[in-house]
Amino acid sequence: MITDVMFHSLRSRSQLIPVEDLIRDCAGSRMPEIIPELLTAPIAAAAAEVCPTRAITTDTPVEGGCALRLDYGKCIGCGRCVEVGDGAIRPAKRFSHSGVSRSELVQTWQTGSGVEAQAGEMHTSARDRVYALLGRALNIRQLDPGSCNGCEAEITALTNPYYDLERFGIHFVASPKHADMLLITGPVTRNMATAVQKTYEAVPLPKLVVAVGACGCSGGIFDRRNCPVGTLVNLNEEIIGPVDSLLPVHGYIPGCPPTPAMLVSGILEVLNRYTGRK
């Protein structure tokens, strides 16, 4: 009976994961990580060859090596590059590219020299400033303009007792008119374009837009521009493209789907950047 349920609830221990453990955690996301010392030109070429969304590409050879370019915004974490990476590419344990700008999702490494040729601008640790910045409550309206619902499943998990986004004063709201932030998943389909535009217009100023998932960041597997070179690809006119093909985007949370920890890190990072500015 209902009282049993209540007692059951009172007896159980708290499951809440401390925010320090969530920031930069990406366990279970399958995002790859490059070990620069081990990276060679053949590995880079093999990784670019197997990548299904052109997240990994190689640039023109420079002094016997070549540059490997990894776009986390396109990565769907299929793990194929890890299989051919021979130790130079492995699943990441820590991930610092959540909630950043589009250009910061891209990293380039020079093979042979072992140096990171052009790192994205690394942001300072959000951890120390999280509590100080979140004095105000943030209302989020989640919007799905065509996602496969993988991202929705993980966003729903943010309200469970492990992540409990409400502890930061962050709520999911039912109406865009109550929202400060739009959390947008998936590629924008042609059928949803008008609804996305109208939803954005209904959010009062100032408003933040966060693109979630590989599809939200880059169109992911659904965008024909991400299809591997050499595959005959049909013109996919059902898809308009990533979120930023329609709306201005303040932060990007990559992953396919991003884990709840990456979502928490990303949302806090966007807040960190944009509430600090005011």
């Binding site: 590629p187 597997i221 595959t231 005959l232 690809v233 996919n236 059902e238």
Partner: peptide
């Protein structure tokens, strides 16, 4: 509303490669 032309997207891909 979430129609993404997915069946079309399969076409032309190597069959053993299209699991994603």
């Amino acid at each position: 509303y979430t129609h993404k032309g997915t069946e079309k997207l399969f076409e032309g891909r190597v069959a053993t490669d299209a699991v994603p």
